[in-house]
Design a protein around this nucleic acid. Structure first.
Lengths: 131, 131
DNA sequence: TTTCAATTTAGAATAAGTATAAATCTATTT
DNA sequence: AAATAGATTTATACTTATTCTAAATTGAAA
């Protein structure tokens, strides 16, 4: 089933995520939809986010906060979160294949993928702190 | 402040986590306490888990499920989750330092740590599937 | 234009965890 | 031992994020 049915609502949700500079939560998406003059049901936004995630048009990120975030970049990459301001950055440096191979060997699992959340302090917060 | 005040409740919660073979959620801990004849308030279990986590006697794991899990192993390690049965295994193979260094360079963040959740299929589920 | 499935809506329900205020426990001082 | 103070526990209310439900709407196909 590769058919993708983009209703008005789904398209609008997709646009918000695609045009976001950050990694918005469902609530963020909701707010931005309202700013754009939409008023969809709360459930519809969640449904749309799930639909788009299923179709792999966006990715759902679970970064250890209470709410999921969404990302329109679907290529393989990881994330880094600033412990001070919460800003989320993309990590494109690929995880070495041999680490995954070793993990497979160690655990006996067939390894599919790794979700990595790096924690640290962003440059901005670092310079503020030094003061 | 290194003083650790282990009340009856905290000790009992700690015992449950320490003696667990798996990675129990707060609800799991609650049930096991009841099995052992305790009946603590729900909030106390959460408080105790947080206290023990703060004192670094246990670790809180956020593996992308809705509920946190707890682990009495506090040494540096990662986790692997079976996509089929949900079983959580320990990953002791250390993350290559140079990957973290590259991430720091790429992002401009001061990198503190990485939480990794590997997904795959455990040996048991794999052999069942082959049938 | 009738029909059927898919979708949206509004609102209720759920799950995990936090907050609160009163009660209880613990240690120390009198 | 009685009094005090601080920490902890309890019961319960609340919050937040998300899912579920049933009715209404939409849209494509016959």
């Amino acid at each position: 089933m590769k058919t993708i049915n983009l209703t008005t609502q789904r398209q609008a949700v997709y646009d918000v995520v695609r045009e976001a500079e950050d990694h918005p939560t469902a609530a963020d998406v909701m707010n931005r939809l309202v700013e754009r003059g939409h008023s969809f049901a709360y459930g519809t936004v969640y449904n749309s986010l799930r639909y788009l995630t299923d179709k792999e048009m966006i990715r759902e990120l679970k970064l250890g906060e209470t709410a999921s975030r969404y990302d329109a970049r679907t290529d393989d990459h990881q994330h880094i979160v600033c412990e001070v301001c919460g800003k989320v950055g993309e990590v494109m440096t690929p995880m070495p294949e041999e680490w995954l191979a070793k993990v497979a060997e160690e655990t006996g699992y067939e390894v599919h993928e790794a979700h990595i959340v790096v924690e640290g302090v962003c440059a901005e917060c670092r310079s503020k702190r030094k003061r």
